[in-house]
C-alpha cells in the first residue's frame, strides 16, 4: 500500500531559520524534506506515512501578509496534493498558532484536504479555529513536543485514511461542539465514585460535564436618583401574552419576545401566561406578576418612587437554552434598552 502523503507547515523558529529577526521570512516550500518537528512526526508515522514537503513561513510574514501568504501556501499545498496537512504544533506562540489555524482551516475548506493542528489551549489560535479543524491540546512550550506529536500523528493518519475519529477526550483534540458517543470501560457510578474520592482527598479530577465558560461584566454604576430613572423588566421565566403569540419554545428557546405593557397595571390569568416548560406553570399562569412584577412597579411608578416603568418588556424561556443563544438575545435586548434610554433593568429568573 502506498504511503500516506503529508505536507507539514512550521514557522521560521522550528525550521531553525532564525528567531524573531527572521519572523518576516516569506513562505518557502521544501520538497522531500521533513524539518524540525517533522522528524518527530516521521518517526511516529513509521512506514505508514511520509512528509513529502515542508512549508516554512515566518510568523510575522504570515500575519502581516495574510492574503498573499495564504494564497501562496495554498498553491504549494495544492501542487503537492497530500492526503493530510499538519500545521505546528504551535504550543503557546500566539502568531504561530493563528498562522497554523488559519492555514490549516484554509487547506481543509478550500482544498478539501483534511488538516490537523495542535497548540496550547490559551493560544489565541485555539479558540479561533478549534471548531473548524481538529486542534490537539498541547503543553505551553516545546518541551511538550513528544506528547503533541504522539497525539497529532495518529489523528492525522486517521483523517488521511478517512477513519472515524473518536471523542475529543479519546483523541486529545479540543472539544469542537460535535458530540461523539462512546462506551467507557467503567460504568458511570464507578467513575462518579472515583471522582468523588479524588475530590474528597483534594486531588485533581476531571469532570465529564464541564460548565460552559461564562464571561464577566463590569458592574454598572449605581443609579443616583430612582425617582427619575426609567426601569425595564426582562425575564427568563417565559412570561408572554396569553396564547404565546410569538411561539417562544418551552425549552431551548430560539427567540425572545418584546411586548408592550403601556396601560397594563396588573398581569392577570386572562391576559398573560408562561411559555416556560421547565417549572410548574400553575402559579405563573394564575398570576404572572409572580414572575414579572408589573403590578408592584406600576404602584411604585404612581407613587413616584421610580421615574417610569419602560413600556416594553423582554422575555424568553431559560430552559435548556444555550449560552450562545442567551448571549445573542441579551446583546440585542441590551442594545434596544439603551436606545430607549432605560437606566436600569430588573431581570427575573425562575
Amino acid at each position: 500500500m502506498a504511503k500516506i502523503k503529508v505536507v507539514h507547515y512550521i514557522n521560521q523558529f522550528f525550521a531553525q531559520v532564525g528567531g524573531e529577526e527572521k519572523a518576516d521570512y516569506p513562505a518557502e516550500l521544501r520538497i522531500g524534506e521533513a524539518v524540525g518537528p517533522g522528524l518527530a512526526f516521521a518517526a511516529n508515522f513509521k512506514d505508514e506515512a511520509e512528509i513529502i514537503a515542508t512549508i516554512v513561513c515566518g510568523d510575522s510574514y504570515f500575519n502581516e501578509n495574510l492574503e498573499k501568504a495564504k494564497k501562496d501556501i495554498l498553491a504549494m499545498v495544492r501542487e503537492q496534493a497530500p492526503d493530510v496537512f499538519i500545521a505546528g504544533p504551535a504550543f503557546n506562540a500566539g502568531r504561530y498558532g493563528v498562522a497554523c489555524g488559519t492555514i490549516a482551516a484554509a487547506v481543509q475548506e478550500e482544498l478539501g484536504i483534511p488538516a490537523v493542528s495542535g497548540m496550547y489551549v490559551e493560544n489565541p489560535g485555539a479558540d479561533m479555529f478549534k471548531n473548524q479543524i481538529y486542534m490537539v491540546v498541547t503543553k505551553n512550550n516545546a518541551a511538550g513536543m513528544r506528547d503533541a506529536v504522539s497525539k497529532m500523528a495518529p489523528l492525522a493518519l486517521k483523517l488521511a485514511k478517512g477513519e472515524t475519529v473518536g471523542a475529543s477526550v479519546e483523541e486529545g483534540y479540543m472539544p469542537n461542539g460535535t458530540r461523539v458517543n462512546f462506551f467507557d470501560k467503567k460504568r458511570g457510578s464507578e467513575r462518579a465514585v472515583q471522582m468523588l474520592l479524588k475530590k474528597l482527598a483534594g486531588k485533581a479530577f476531571e469532570t465529564e460535564y464541564p460548565m460552559p465558560n461564562f464571561d464577566r461584566v463590569e458592574p454598572s454604576p449605581p443609579i443616583k436618583d430612582l425617582s427619575h430613572a426609567k426601569i425595564a423588566l426582562v425575564t427568563s421565566g417565559g412570561i408572554v401574552p396569553k396564547g404565546n403569540p410569538d411561539h417562544i419554545e418551552s425549552s431551548s428557546a430560539s427567540r425572545y419576545g418584546e411586548y408592550d405593557i403601556t396601560g397594563v397595571s396588573d398581569l392577570t390569568e386572562d391576559t398573560y401566561e408562561t411559555a416556560h416548560g421547565g417549572y410548574d406553570p400553575v402559579y405563573a399562569n394564575k398570576d404572572a406578576d409572580r414572575v414579572l412584577p408589573v403590578d408592584v412597579l406600576r404602584d411604585l411608578e404612581k407613587e413616584g418612587a421610580i421615574g417610569k416603568l419602560h413600556n416594553l418588556f423582554y422575555t424568553t424561556v431559560g430552559n435548556g437554552t444555550s449560552v450562545a443563544s442567551a448571549k445573542a438575545f441579551a446583546a440585542e435586548i441590551a442594545a434596544k434598552l439603551k436606545k430607549d434610554g432605560v437606566d436600569a433593568v430588573i431581570l427575573t429568573s425562575t
Binding site: Y283, V296, T348
Partner: peptide, 14 residues
C-alpha cells in the same frame, strides 16, 4: 453583579 434572592423557582416574586 447585583443579585436579590427570591421566594421559589415557580413563583420568585410571590
Amino acid at each position: 453583579n447585583r443579585i436579590v434572592p427570591a421566594i421559589a423557582i415557580p413563583y420568585p416574586l410571590g
